[in-house]
Every structure is written in C-alpha cells, then in structure tokens.
Design a protein around this nucleic acid. Structure first.
Length: 425
RNA sequence: GGAGAGGUGGCUGAGUCAGGUCGAAAGCGCUCCCCUGCUAAGGGAGUAAGGGCUUAAAAGCUCUUCGUGGGUUCAAAUCCCACCCUCUCCGCCA
C-alpha cells in the first residue's frame, strides 16, 4: 500500500509515478476526496467524544457527592451527543473502509531507475550468460519427451490424479527434484535462516503481499475454512514479522523457505501447457529479507547474485532482465527476472523474480523498525526472489544435460544429493 | 471434538465478582544523568503504538487501542453476548 500522506502532500507526483506503469490514476483523485471528507467528520466525531467524556466525568463527581438530581440533565444531553457521535462514527468508518479498498488496489510506485516501458517487449536484457548457443541435436529434445522416455516424469498420471497442468516426478526424476531443493537451501544457509512455514494461510496474510484482493482469481481458496494456498513462500515469510516492531540492529533479517506453491494460472489458459512449463503446483526455495531503506539496495543485489549463481553453477544458460515499468509486478518497485534457456523446448523460462517492494508490502503487513536512539518507528522494506524454482530448472537441466545416448548426466554441484547417481538412463 | 483456566505495555504481572482522572500499580529490560581508576553494585529521571488538528520547528491539544466484534451505561480493561487464540486434562490422530 502506498503512503496516503504522500498522496496528500504531492498528488501529482504520485500520479506521475503510477502512470509510468500505464495504470489509470483516477482512483487517486477519489481517494484524496474521500480522505478529506473522512478527516473532517473524524474531527467532529473526536470533539463530540471529548465532550461526552468530560460530561461523564462531571456526572461521576456529582454522583459521588450525592447530587444525583443535578446529574440527570447532564446524562440526558450526553445521550443526545452519543446519537450524533454514532452517526459521524459510522460515516467515518464507512469512508475509511472505502479508502482502504481503493488503496489496496493501487500498485506500488516504481523505482526511479526502473526502465520505462509498456510491456514485456520493453524489458531490458542486462546480460546473457552460460552455455554456448551451438546446441547439439541431442539437446533439442523437450523435457516432456525425455521424462517419458526415462520414466522420470509422468504428466499423464498426474493429470489422472489432479487434472491438467499438474506434474508428477517419478524415480530419479523425483530424486533430482529433491536434490535441487536441497542444493537451493544449502548454498544460502550461510546467511539465510531456514523457515518451514504453513502453506495454508489467512486472508490477511495474502493481503499483506498484494496477492489479494486484486489477484483473487490466481489463488486457490479453501472455502470451508477460509484459507488460501500460498502461491509462493513470499506470502508467509512477509507476514512472519507482521504487526511487529523490529530492532534496527537486527536488520537485515534474511529468511529462506522451501514450500510447495499453488497457482491457478487463471489468465494463462492454453499457454505453455506442455510438460513443466507452467504447472498449478510446484516446489520452490524462496529467499526473503526485511531491511532498512538504506540496506535495501545491497540486499537486493545479494538476493539477485545468489539466485543467479544457483543457476550459473548448474551450468545452465540464462539471461537477466530488468523489468520495465509496464511489466513490473503490482507490489514491486524494481524487479530483475532470471530466465533460463531450455534448449529442448527452445524457450526462455522465468525461474526467479528478484524484487524490491520498498515499504509497499511492509505497510500492508505493518512491519516496522525502531532506529537506535530515535523515537518513533519506520516501515521496513521487503525484498525477495526465488533461490531455486524446481520445475523449470529441472526442465532446462534435463534438456541441457541430455547426452547423445539419451541419458542425462548430473551436473557436479548436484552429485552430493543424488546418492551416487551420476547418470540417469 | 468435550471439560476447565486464561488472553492487559518490549517482557513479567496487578487491576476484573462493589463500572467513574486506569493507557493502566509493581518488577524486569531499555535510554539518559550522578557516583566510580575500570567493572559490578548504588542513587535519580525518562520509557507503548497509531490517527487527527495546530506549529517554521520544538512542543501542545485531542481521539483510538487492555484478544476480536457487538451490547448495556452519562461513563467499560472492569458488566452481558458471540467469536478467535493460548494453556491443562480427556477423546481422536500422522
């Protein structure tokens, strides 16, 4: 959520920032209008409350000194004031709710240095790294074919169990999946504390990251218990410190989680449906940090370099994109995407979005910090990115490491996790 | 799922079953000052968050918050109702 005081102080500036995303800014005018109304009636309401309190005090004293008859008219007038107070109070609450509803749907302000653009085509490719572009014929087999041939991926049975766009890893395919997770966690354990959070969360938890209310169609909801299946560990980790006041000396706080992630993919029906390109449920290692505004840049770099090296060390080809204002996620101020190249599917696959959310999520989640020796609190910044997203890395890896004889050789960093298996055949 | 106990500030914990300067005793912690060769001990002062108004600022005024939401009342941490959560016991269970 953006700071409403920023809106009051400089509406035009906020409008200019939001419209860089190509978003309509009319709501902001409405918010300002409602905000003014709300403050006016709140002021009247508070005055009335003050009077009621004062009268009550007098009534109390009169009763104590036995002058009950003198108290009666005061009680009468207080009753009348209460009727008026309730009216104002109701109006205030109604307007406040309305403002909140609107504000929850306003996206974050992009970082100043975020590249300008209207859509994916305007994202800036910062660099392309890794393997050569001369791919051998035996690497040009898509992973769904490899998976079937080696019996390490069973999409057909997964569909039987759960419907379209679910996957099932089998045998060494499942082992490889587990190896990637462990690899993703272990290499970041030096600084990031491992958390295994719940994967079903309350509505409030989904609101904090920005996944609700705007993107309700993308989330799985368990109606009976009013719980949501998390689309990423970003969701529970962002609420880890919800409503807490952190010590500045404890920041940055770095956390990581391996969880299942659930996505309805409502807007992408029929797109990327083959194999592991886009699935409703997948495993992912997520890195997340709470930081001061001053620390944010450094932490952003840290998460990006960790996400990048995880892919680089596996010997995969990848590129890094600086997302433009038009493609930036709703809650993000700046995002770098890492895309891995899958030679068999012949596609760049997004495997990590490393984002700086400024105070947008933290304001929703009410995560603050107290600076040493200063009074008052400030809103923290949140940052996160995938340390390792299993299906797409699995796919690119299987395709990249397919040998002429159809087997898959396991890259060296994963060997410690493969129980002695060096080749899948 | 059943029975009982309980949810108060950064923490511990009074206040609730006589409703009225109680946003809240006391202790711990923390900050500053004094004392001290250093440390410890000791003495003193301060110390919740959030909103609004006023102000150049310092500061001041005011409202909200004692698990959440309703109700009673001139007045609610305190009385009533519902719900949530925690703990103990029983049941069930990976």
């Amino acid at each position: 959520m953006i700071d409403i005081r920023l809106l009051r102080n400089d509406l035009d500036l906020v409008k200019k920032c939001i419209s860089r995303r190509g978003e309509n800014t009319e709501v902001l005018d409405l918010v300002i209008e409602l905000d003014l109304k709300q403050r006016q009636s709140a002021e009247k309401r508070d005055e009335l409350r003050n009077e009621i309190k004062e009268v009550s005090r007098q009534v109390g004293e009169l009763h104590k000194s036995g002058k009950t008859d003198e108290a009666t008219p005061l009680q009468e007038s207080s009753r009348n004031m209460r009727v008026e107070e309730e009216k104002l109070s109701e109006e205030c609450d109604r307007i406040s709710d309305e403002i909140r509803e609107l504000l929850l749907r306003v996206p974050n302000i992009p970082a100043e240095d975020c590249p300008e653009g209207v859509g994916v085509e305007d994202n800036v490719v910062l660099r392309v790294e890794g393997g050569d572009t001369l791919w051998e014929e035996h690497q040009r087999i898509p992973h769904w074919e490899i998976g079937e041939a080696l019996k390490i991926l069973d999409v057909e049975r997964a569909t039987k169990l759960s419907g379209a766009m679910f996957a099932m890893y089998t045998g060494l395919g499942a082992t490889l999946c587990r190896a990637l997770i462990q690899y993703g966690l272990d290499r970041n354990a030096d600084e990031y504390r491992e958390i295994r959070p719940p994967t079903l969360v309350l509505t409030e938890t989904m609101i904090s990251t920005g996944h609700l209310p705007k993107f309700i169609d993308d989330a799985y909801h368990l109606e009976r218990d009013d719980l949501w299946a998390i689309p990423t560990a970003e969701v529970p980790l962002t609420s880890y410190a919800r409503d807490e006041i952190l010590d500045e000396s404890d920041l940055p706080i770095k956390l990581m989680s391996h969880t299942s992630c659930f996505r309805r993919e409502a807007g992408s029906a029929g797109r990327d449906t083959r194999g592991l390109l886009r699935v409703h449920e997948f495993d992912k290692v997520e890195l997340l940090a709470y930081a001061t505004p001053e620390q944010a840049q450094e932490v952003h770099d840290d998460i990006l370099s960790r996400a990048e090296s995880a892919i680089a060390d596996l010997g995969l080809t990848y590129r890094i994109l600086d997302l433009c204002t038009g493609d930036l996620g709703n809650s993000s101020a700046r995002t770098f995407d890492i895309e891995v190249y899958a030679p068999g599917a012949d596609q760049w696959l997004e495997v990590s979005s490393v984002s700086w959310f400024s105070d947008y999520q933290a304001r929703r989640a009410n995560v603050r910090y107290r600076a040493q020796g200063e009074k008052g609190t400030s809103v923290v910044h949140t940052l996160n990115g995938s340390g390792l997203a299993v299906p797409r890395v699995w796919a690119a890896l299987v395709e990249t490491y397919r040998q002429e004889d159809g087997s898959i050789s396991i890259p060296e960093p994963l060997l410690p996790y493969m129980q002695g298996v060096k080749t899948i055949n």
